[in-house]
Design a protein around this nucleic acid. Structure first.
Lengths: 250, 250
DNA sequence: TTTTTCTTTTGATGTGGATCAACGACGCGC
DNA sequence: GCGCGTCGTTGATCCACATCAAAAGAAAAA
């Protein structure tokens, strides 16, 4: 379990690395045609794009903290982001990793229920929440899209509860690798040598394990020939079916 | 960890205990003014009510199973319901308990992502999903309400991930009791002697513990004078602040 | 009421993963 | 290139909770 490291926190990079006011619509959002913009026509898209600002984060930079006023929602254009919650003594639970195309910042209360931090350098589209809410009144399509996103997240959250509450370390690691492979495939990236861009600590905090256990379990799977640990944080799924079997049918 | 008991399963009560076609609007839904009907005017309410059927479940009766076609959504009028997921070998994770006023059955895919079963006798309002979806096209208010419900559930799910991944047995039980108290208060029921209507097995499967550990932890808290175990499944929160402290600030 | 059955509690023992400790390996700035 | 800080791996030991076992309550059936 990771205990909050105050020394490290004070050394963190500044909150927002760079920020650009951009008159053109968020290229990645419209090009990819994903996330909240997906169901919109060009006129609607222009209205949404007018609200948007680009944000750039360097690895390790926080986007916002739990409890902070939830003024914006975001679309992650590229990079990897983690969202997490802390206990008062610093124990951390990473509740999710976000990748290119993912949506972030849904909140009913007016404060964020979790913190968000860049794992790798990130590009995001930012929308002021109240303006987007005004727009939603006139464009139910956005609301539909948001409901669909929330429903999918809810399904994923329940899956993760099953993992945290009932799976062994071995099953957790196998599930984690399968999840990374699936998500990479979804956004059209290579899924066999899986790129594991996050640290053992982040993985441990996501799976409810310690770094040591994460490391030992990777080693164990490697020795069994189920995976190969390649350079540059890549993992080859040597026996994909075996891994899927261990993951527990999910 | 609970392993699937095939003998017990075969002895379970039939799926739907009773069912009534009801011309009048679901009394509880409109009276309470909660859940998806909350923001509607009387004309809109009539349209929604026209789609509704009442369902009655006896304790232990399943409402639907994971993987089943998601044909309906439900409003729980009274009683307690549990939703859960199973691993292939029968290990179970209860992902939530639902109480009077709660909404159930949100799904993007066309199958349920979890199973639902009555803990106590239950009364529900049932809505055919495709008809409700048609209605949503014309009444964005319902969609807004659903998005709000989903957002709240998402916050609760992240809270539960923190609990499952990072809290000790003692902290889990304390959090569980505080949650029950809070939810009882929300729906205007006595919150101090908390009614714990579910079995130790259900609690264990909700918190990622065994029945034995749940029982031992209750006993321990009782011996420390933090709670009192009363007859009829009631628990008196003798030292509420101490319990809140143990729960970890949530 | 007594009997049966299921649930909860309590006890004895085992173990998966945490903790504590040290070392090796990679990346970065100089 | 070299030194240095961070991250990952490996080893030894510990402990919170699981597992196994049985008794004590509670509820349902006879």
């Amino acid at each position: 379990m990771t205990v909050f490291d105050f020394d490290r926190a004070s050394k963190l990079a500044p909150a927002v690395a760079r920020e650009r006011k951009d008159d053109s619509p968020c290229a990645a959002c419209s090009v990819r045609g994903m996330t909240i913009c997906a169901p919109l026509d060009s006129n609607e898209l222009a209205q949404v794009s007018a609200l948007m600002t680009s944000v750039e984060l360097q690895a390790g930079a926080p986007l916002f903290d739990e409890g902070e006023e939830a003024g914006n929602v975001y679309n992650l254009t590229s990079g990897t982001l983690k969202v997490y919650k802390l206990l008062p003594d610093g124990r951390r639970q990473v509740t999710g990793f976000l990748f290119g195309g993912d949506f972030l910042g849904l909140a009913t209360q007016d404060t964020y229920a979790f913190s968000a931090e860049a794992v790798t350098p990130c590009l995001l589209c930012r929308f002021p929440r109240h303006k987007l809410e005004d727009l939603m009144q006139r464009m139910p399509k956005i609301e539909q899209r948001l409901l669909s996103i929330a429903s999918n997240e809810l399904v994923a959250a329940q899956e993760q509860m099953l993992l945290l509450g009932r799976k062994t370390a071995r099953e957790k690691i196998a599930s984690f690798l399968m999840m990374l492979a699936k998500r990479a495939k979804q956004r059209g990236q290579p899924e066999d040598p899986v790129l594991v861009s996050m640290s053992r600590t982040d993985i441990g905090d996501y799976l409810g394990l310690t770094t040591e256990t994460v490391s030992r379990t990777f080693t164990q799977l490697k020795q069994e020939g189920i995976i190969n640990l390649l350079p540059n944080h890549q993992v080859k799924l040597a026996q994909r079916e075996a891994l899927e079997e261990i993951a527990g049918g999910y």
